[in-house]
Nucleic acid binder design. Structure first.
Length: 203
DNA sequence: CCTACGATCTGCT
DNA sequence: GCAGATCGTAGGG
């Protein structure tokens, strides 16, 4: 029964294709134990960002700064940054060291600790607004930039495979949200989401 | 040093 | 539907 649950190994994050990694993360379960509180949710929506030839990516074409340094590090670590001065956005670093590929988590279906999430969000536990957006789910899970760079094979933030596998026909794609500044690259269909799920950002 | 702006969300109209 | 919030980062002087 519980033997179906396993933490994603480093090799999962070492995928050489960030769009494949992005798709594969749909259906996986992100878990946090923050201040001793366990919360979790199934990933419903992701976006791929590539370190080479992708103007939407913070680390595009080798741009290396203190902010982007984590993206150039070991896959399977968290890149968490502050967006619009308010929202903490959570990414997983993929591929291999030095390349700066990452997947942004944009939506989850809350599973465990929903009352705790509701408290953190000051929203009802059973409504999509609890976690149907990149800034909402981090608040629900208790994730802040203070955890930037953390290893996802540790015991604070991790991702599990619980044996849920959706058929490819249920994974829809679209252009990425909020990256119009990236010009032509903004049109790439690098957003992936579970069709029919309520727990997906409206955009 | 200074300025512009964002991988968003909320509340109000 | 739209404007305001809010602050770290990047880039330029």
């Amino acid at each position: 029964m519980s033997s179906d649950i396993k933490i994603l190994p480093r090799s999962f994050y070492e995928s050489a294709d960030v769009t494949e990694a992005s798709k594969s993360l749909i259906g996986k379960v992100i878990c946090t134990r923050i201040d001793g509180v366990f919360t979790s949710g199934m990933i419903t929506e992701t976006e791929a960002y590539c370190g080479r030839n992708d103007k939407a990516c913070h680390a595009n074409d080798g741009l290396r700064t203190s902010r982007t340094e984590v993206m150039y590090g070991t896959p399977g670590h968290a890149y968490i940054y502050l967006c619009y001065g308010i929202h903490h956005l959570f990414n997983v670093v993929t591929n291999r060291e030095g390349l700066a590929d990452a997947v942004l988590i944009r939506g989850i279906q809350p599973l465990e600790g929903t009352d705790e999430m509701a408290g953190r969000r000051n929203k009802p536990a059973d409504k999509p607004e609890l976690a149907d957006g990149p800034g909402k789910l981090t608040q629900a899970l208790g994730i802040t930039t203070g955890y930037n760079g953390i290893d996802l094979l540790g015991n604070k933030i991790w991702i599990e495979d619980r044996g849920v596998k959706f058929p490819d026909v249920r994974i829809f794609s679209s252009s990425r949200i909020g990256v119009d500044y990236a010009g032509e690259h903004a049109k790439r269909p690098w957003r992936f989401y579970l069709s029919g799920s309520k727990w997906v950002s409206s955009g």
